[in-house]
Design a binder for these strands. Structure first.
Lengths: 347, 347
DNA sequence: GGCATGTTTTAAAACGTTTGCAATTTAGCC
DNA sequence: GGCTAAATTGCAAACGTTTTAAAACATGCC
């Protein structure tokens, strides 16, 4: 069995002091004589004393943990920036000495029930919720419990206030449109998903708004919708966009995975990117840099965002701010080689 | 503040029973009358009772958590399969109701000190250690503490027994050699790293062993070593391999990131892959499928391995097996288009 | 030396759970 | 009905910490 860990009682006995005094001395309370504090601190250092988390949590009601439910998708599919996200979150939490709890859902178990368990077992002082759905029962639950959380993403209707950080997808898609419009494109395609996630609306609305702002009636937008995780259906939807008499000259994809598929299908159809077709994605996943000719996309700096989310959550846990903390982060354009001037002539 | 959570005391009061009885009933002890057990279970369900983790940990000495120190690298660099790894780990743990704790190291804090803290604060019942270094103080520490852990990777010298799971890099690199040899290659390059990680030796030794097995004195191997995270130095090292009078016809890279750089540099040097140069990597990161012409590599099925590591660790925590649990996983070849017959003629 | 005042230390309760042991209730039997 | 044995339930301690309230000690002053 593991070597015994030093406890406050042992330390106190060794020093000939009471547990109370040792506890206070380590906490740096002024009321303990300076000499005693130093003596205790030194002894604790030497004994390698580390306070027991469970005991501390029990009495203080604070665990020092932040929870998150692991997004488990298909058997072979993993959220492409989960690694970046947890890294950033960890970085954001460590400054205040908090750690991250990752809870997975068992087969057939709902993400909500895992969340409930994390919250109600007192494992965490707050949670992070990602990938916000149009109707998101996790948020309703957390609100009803009045439990501290920060969402990565937003609900569409502002029917209740909460703390969130989101990437400004609307802005990015507007930018994409403006850039492509200025390059002469008038016929656009949008590849989106059928899953009820809020970000698809935010991005699509951003695109629509940019089109409206321009006020050019000759602009046309075709939308293809595919289920998110069905590669076959995705390819079909994309080809429905590509193989029509009047094909868009520029396709904006909801995120990079879709954009990469668009480029693959374009290549298969004998279309050269960007000569015949411009493609723009969103997320800047690692593969986008390598997929020829290099996907133009938007970087959402997930790691940095996750770090901020961690810091926000610690503020929420500590201060319980009345007004919602919100933060909209502008993604930055990563201009590679998949976009260019609209083709002229016979198209 | 958060809505109050139901406690055992409340439940007991509500049922007119003692805390002891309620606790036992929920634990399913036979000594409690069946009727009582059912009554208690139903009441608990209705009240949404979830036992407090801290209290349970305190008395039982088991936290139900497994710890891991977040590998934080450069400011922009994240372990490329961290997401897969934690997902797999979560899947492996959830079957026994354990969760994962991810602890980050603060700026300038050593990974070892974070590990110590995780262990000594009683946060976790066991830990996972990844990326084993040639001299790894984390393993020495854990052994000395006799704390349950499973390593992803191996030490080179078997000076002490411990539980590990490793990908059989030696096997993969032997396979790569055999395949390339059979395609006519005789002059090989190996791109490796200068960081003292054990896996570089295991893989390189696997390659050397395969060469020795073949017993062909005409086989030649050039080795280029680069620091892992310095892109400039990496490129230089690779070019030292490419720009010599007698250039290797096949390059094996320690892992995909290096292989992708090799392909980029080859392209820049006007070499066609695989016509002029065959390249083989290891890891099968996402970008490898997209980088033209498609990198031939080995898939280590990280997620599955991590799941097994999670299961192993739970066994270790529960049973404290005397004999070390070890598992060597064969990576599978992912044959894409970056390797081919050795060029003939003027080379 | 006694008293007020300020400084330093400690006893004890509390957090929510599990568990060894004892107490109570019930059932079985003569 | 009383006794024993079995079944069922409860008391109280323990886990390691923080914190309230109070005790002990030192100091300064008359």
């Amino acid at each position: 069995m593991p070597a015994r860990v030093t406890t406050l009682k042992e330390l106190a006995a060794q020093l000939g002091l009471s547990i109370t005094t040792v506890s206070r001395a380590l906490a740096g309370h002024e009321q303990i004589a300076l000499k005693t504090r130093q003596r205790v601190t030194e002894a604790a250092r030497q004994a390698g004393y580390v306070p027991n988390t469970a005991a501390r949590t029990l009495v203080s009601g604070r665990s020092g943990f932040v929870g998150m439910v692991l997004p488990i998708r298909g058997p072979n599919l993993v959220d492409s920036f989960l690694g970046e996200f947890v890294t950033g979150l960890g970085e954001g939490l460590v400054s205040h000495g908090s750690d991250l709890i990752l809870a997975a859902a068992a087969q057939g178990q709902s993400e909500l029930s895992v969340l409930r368990h994390v919250v109600e077992s007192g494992r965490a002082d707050g949670v992070v919720v990602t990938r916000i759905a149009e109707v998101d029962e996790r948020l309703s639950y957390l609100r009803q419990r009045n439990f501290p959380f920060v969402a990565h993403g937003r609900l569409l209707d502002g029917d209740f206030a909460y703390h969130w950080l989101d990437t400004d997808g609307a802005y990015a898609f507007g930018e994409a449109f403006d850039m492509l419009y200025d390059l002469g494109h008038r016929h656009f395609g949008l590849v989106t998903i059928s899953e009820p996630m809020t970000f698809r609306h935010l991005r699509q609305d951003g695109l629509a708004a940019a089109i409206a702002r321009r006020g050019d009636p000759s602009v046309r937008l075709d939308v293809a919708t595919a289920p998110r995780f069905d590669r076959g259906a995705r390819i079909q939807a994309i080809n429905r966009l590509l193989h029509v008499a009047e094909r868009p000259t520029a396709i904006v994809a909801l995120f990079d995975e879709l954009a990469l598929t668009v480029m693959e299908e374009a290549a298969r159809a004998g279309l050269a990117v960007p000569r015949d077709l411009s493609v723009i994605g969103f997320d800047n996943i690692a593969a986008s840099a390598y997929a020829p000719p290099g996907l133009t996309t938007f970087d959402a700096s997930i790691r940095q965002c996750a770090r901020e989310i961690g810091e926000m959550l610690l503020t929420v846990i500590g201060d319980r701010p009345a007004a919602p903390l919100t933060r909209l982060v502008r993604p930055t354009l990563v201009s590679r080689a998949s976009h260019g001037p609209a083709p002229t002539g016979q198209n």
